[in-house]
Simulated scan of single mutants.
Amino acid sequence: MSEFQDVRVVVTGAGRGLGRGIAETFARAGARVMLGARTLAPAEEAVAAIRAAGGVARAVECDVTRHADCTALIAATVEAYGGVDVLIHCAADIPHGGLGSVSDEKLETGLASIAKAAWWLLDAARPHMARAPGGGRFIAIGSVNGTVSVVPGMTAYGMAKAALLAFVRGAAIDVVGDGITVNAIQPGLIATDNARRVLGEEGLAAYGATVPAGRAGTPADIAHACLFFASPAAGYVTGASLVMDGGASLAPGSGGRGDILRDRLRAQVEG
C-alpha cells in the first residue's frame, strides 16, 4: 500500500498546469485530493480524469485572493474527507511588470494570491493538520525569480514570491509545535500547457538549451518534490526551500544570447 493511501491533500491552482499535475500525482499515489481553482470548469475536468484513472478527487471554486474563499476551501475538504493532512499552495495571479508599470490593483492581487493566501490557508488548516497522522505538511510553490535570480520586468511577481519564502521560514517556527512542517519549492520555467501555448515546443527547446540540465522542468519534476516534502521521510525538514531550475540560477552568465532568450521566456510564463 502506498504511504499516501487515503492521505487528504489540498492543492490550490489545481485546474491547470503545475497545480493539476501535482493533484494528479498525489491521486495516483492513493491520496484523496481536493482541487481548488478560481475557474471551476477546468478543475472539474481534472477531477473527471483522476476518477477515470481510479483516483479520488473533488473540486471547489476558490479565488485565493479572498480570505473567505481560502477558509471555505479548507472547510470543504474537512467536510468531504474528515480532515487535512497535506496542503500545497500552487495558485498565483502573476503581476507582470517592473517598478512604475504595475497598477495598485494588480500589485495587491499578486501579493494576495501568492503570499497572503499562504497565510490564510495555513491559518485555516492548522487545527486540522495538527491532528494529521504522522504530522501535517504545508508546501508552497515559490519561484527562483525574486529569491535567487531577477527577471527584468517581473519585479512585482518576484517581490510576491520573496514574501512567500519569508512566510515559509517564519511559519515553520510558528507551527512546529503542532507537528506541522512548512517548506517551499522554487521552480524555474516549467513546461506546462500554458508554456507550450505561449512558446511552442520550439521555444521550450530553445530555453532548455540555455539550462545546464539541458531542458525546461516538467510538472512531474515538481510533483515528485512535493511527494518528498509530504512524506514521512521529510519529517525532519521544515523551513526549507528547494531550488528546481535545472541549474539555471547557478550559471546566469553562461548563455550569451541564450540568457536574453531565457529571460524573455521566463518573463512570459514562469511560475
Rank of each mutant, 00 (worst) to 15 (best):
187 P>Y: 08
230 A>Y: 08
258 G>Y: 11
141 I>K: 00
69 D>G: 11
210 T>M: 04
228 F>W: 13
156 A>Y: 01
84 V>K: 01
103 S>I: 13
58 R>I: 14
14 A>R: 01
41 A>S: 14
250 L>Q: 15
205 A>N: 06
95 P>S: 08
247 G>N: 08
209 A>K: 06
85 D>K: 01
37 A>L: 04
131 R>P: 01
16 R>V: 12
223 A>K: 05
183 N>L: 13
130 A>T: 02
234 A>T: 05
194 N>R: 15
213 A>P: 05
242 L>V: 14
145 N>T: 15
7 V>R: 08
197 R>L: 13
115 A>P: 02
266 R>G: 11
203 G>V: 12
106 K>M: 15
182 V>I: 10
188 G>A: 10
228 F>Q: 09
143 S>Y: 09
179 G>M: 07
172 A>E: 00
104 D>K: 07
97 G>S: 06
226 C>V: 10
108 E>D: 15
18 L>W: 10
49 A>I: 00
14 A>V: 09
81 Y>V: 04
259 D>Q: 13
67 H>N: 08
5 Q>C: 03
164 L>S: 05
256 G>K: 04
154 M>I: 04
72 A>T: 08
156 A>H: 00
165 L>I: 14
139 I>F: 02
186 Q>G: 09
46 A>M: 05
106 K>E: 15
255 G>C: 05
87 L>K: 02
25 T>C: 13
225 A>H: 10
46 A>E: 05
145 N>V: 15
74 I>Y: 00
203 G>H: 10
34 M>G: 03
244 M>Q: 13
27 A>W: 02
187 P>L: 11
145 N>M: 09
132 A>E: 04
223 A>F: 11
12 T>Y: 03
123 D>P: 00
74 I>H: 00
241 S>T: 09
263 D>R: 14
229 F>D: 02
173 I>N: 04
222 I>R: 03
134 G>D: 11
143 S>V: 12
112 A>F: 05
229 F>M: 08
38 R>H: 10
147 T>L: 04
38 R>Q: 09
5 Q>L: 11
45 E>I: 07
191 A>I: 12
65 T>C: 13
110 G>M: 02
269 V>K: 02
149 S>D: 12
176 V>R: 11
59 A>Q: 03
49 A>F: 00
148 V>R: 05
207 Y>S: 03
52 A>R: 11
117 A>T: 02
8 R>M: 10
159 M>Q: 01
210 T>W: 05
270 E>Q: 14
176 V>D: 07
199 L>P: 05
211 V>P: 10
16 R>G: 04
229 F>K: 00
157 Y>T: 10
21 G>H: 04
7 V>C: 07
206 A>T: 13
69 D>W: 03
240 A>Q: 14
96 H>D: 12
210 T>I: 13
160 A>E: 04
137 R>W: 01
198 V>C: 14
27 A>H: 03
215 R>G: 14
226 C>T: 10
226 C>Q: 03
158 G>Y: 14
21 G>K: 06
44 E>A: 10
120 W>V: 01
144 V>M: 11
236 Y>K: 06
205 A>K: 12
175 V>Y: 03
9 V>R: 00
65 T>F: 04
262 R>C: 13
262 R>I: 15
13 G>T: 12
205 A>C: 09
209 A>Q: 07
108 E>W: 08
26 F>R: 01
61 E>I: 11
162 A>V: 11
52 A>Q: 12
166 A>H: 06
233 A>R: 09
67 H>R: 13
170 G>P: 05
